[in-house]
Design a protein around this nucleic acid. Structure first.
Lengths: 265, 265
DNA sequence: CGTTCGATTGAGGAAGATCAATTAATGTGG
DNA sequence: CCACATTAATTGATCTTCCTCAATCGAACG
């Protein structure tokens, strides 16, 4: 039984955030319009669309806290307001894998809708705040307010598309390019959030990254070392979890050079 | 550019089925209740839930026909009434992969919701019939009829979950077990449809299967030969596309024996 | 300051890809 | 209906990639 992923998972810690500004004040409607598809827009859109009567349960989480676990009865969808999260899928025979990484603006919990129980574990990688929406209340609100429904569906659609892109990456790229692609993804997620995209703080161990990317931790380490040697990335800070990307375009070029060499069609 | 996947793709052929029995008569409501989660139930559920005013465009397709292609403007979701279908994802640099296989009762087109354009190609593997639902009309119908909305969400949820299960299989199983898992999946899909699950007619070439499973066509061929040698499967018919599964449990055991050996955690 | 956990790096081996040759199936024109 | 052409599938030999095993190093923490 691989203990890598479950290590450090702490008990659920449901803390209600004390004082917060009113929901509608966080992002202005105008700002929402300007930043298309960015997480600012997505979170703002949520805030704008959520009718006052739909209760939003706020919860602070810390690294290792679980949002939900497989088998738990489904009742809520979660909107990530801040922090970093992973989703772990476990097979009947015990194989497990990190199948998703999620950030501000993402939704969690879709996997629970079909069966009425969550299929995966959702775990915080860092301190953050999540909003819990009762699914039944959300459905009613959606029926009354179609833009909210459209927004919800767009999120589910994105979840499907991202999963497919991950598949493509895992199945068509050699390990080195997979790691580069991972960094590129992370950076673009940061830029969607309006943060600087050239500076990444990995919140996972090499073992977790390797599990996510379908390779061993040694392969992750070697790939990162190679990227650093070739000046495609740079390590910052004391530990080796701060990564700088001087030239994102060079990363793209590297990935493409790898695919041209190894075209598994 | 890998030509494997696009080979044999023919132009869209939109044929309206001539005479059909009225929608509600195909599956009785009682039958729907009895067969939980099977595709009979899912198709029947659709029929029951779709209000009369929601227009359903029927289309007959043949092997190679495209339901939609990447970049096309999104307007419809598709419910598969019969036939076999594949979904192909293509990266910016030309890498492409079969990321999904779909059967009677499945929905296609969710990937188009978020951006307003389809992200993938959906191609028929065999003759079949699909129902096209205008997404805007569907949203309105959902708002008026919440069970329909719940059903739609359940389908999207399943799409997400299935994608994650595929990821897990691709990233944690050696090639032999991946092929066995593929056969098991196909068989269980057949059984959900009420068809016999011990007899599979592969509608894809070894190259397509390999692409779907993240391995070469030679590996697929070798894996199938090994499974046949070990009596876990048997080839029927003239070609080697008819596969019999004498003992599904033995397949499970085989997969598990492989995972115990190669635990990439 | 030692202990522990994570990361790096090297050496060797195994799984699977690639290359190549053969056979089987499918389709085509005569 | 048959000879031929074409595509799909199988099988073997070789080679590359990546995994496994192991040792070392560094950082974090009590």
């Amino acid at each position: 039984m691989p203990a890598v992923l479950s290590a450090g998972v702490r008990a659920v810690q449901a803390v209600e955030a004390p004082a917060h500004p009113p929901l509608r004040a966080v992002v202005s409607a105008g700002e929402v319009q300007r930043i298309a598809f960015g997480s600012q827009a997505r979170v703002g859109e949520m805030l704008r669309l959520l009718p006052g009567q739909l209760p939003v349960g706020r919860r602070l989480v810390h690294a290792g806290d679980t949002i939900y676990i497989a088998g738990e009865v489904f009742a809520h969808l979660y909107v990530l307001n801040s922090g970093y999260f992973k989703v772990i899928n476990t097979a009947a025979d015990g194989r497990e894998q990190v199948v998703g990484l999620h950030f501000r603006g993402d939704w969690l919990g879709f996997d629970g809708i079909a069966t009425g129980r969550y299929i995966c574990d959702a775990v915080a990688l860092d301190t953050g705040e999540i909003w819990a929406l009762r699914y039944d209340a959300l459905l009613l609100a959606c029926a009354a307010h179609l833009p909210l429904l459209a927004s919800l569906h767009a999120e589910m659609s994105r979840a499907i598309t991202r999963g497919r892109d991950s598949m493509l990456s895992r199945c068509t790229l050699p390990v080195g390019a997979r790691v580069a692609d991972f960094l590129r993804d992370w950076a673009s997620a940061l830029s969607r959030q309006g943060q600087r995209a050239d500076q990444i703080t990995l919140r996972m161990t090499r073992a977790e990254i390797g599990n996510y990317l379908g390779m061993t931790l040694e392969s992750v380490s070697r790939a990162l070392s190679t990227l650093a040697r070739d000046k495609l990335i740079r390590f910052a800070g004391k530990g080796r979890r701060e990564i700088l990307i001087p030239d994102p375009g060079a990363l793209d070029a590297f990935i493409q050079s790898q695919t041209a060499a190894t075209s598994r069609s």
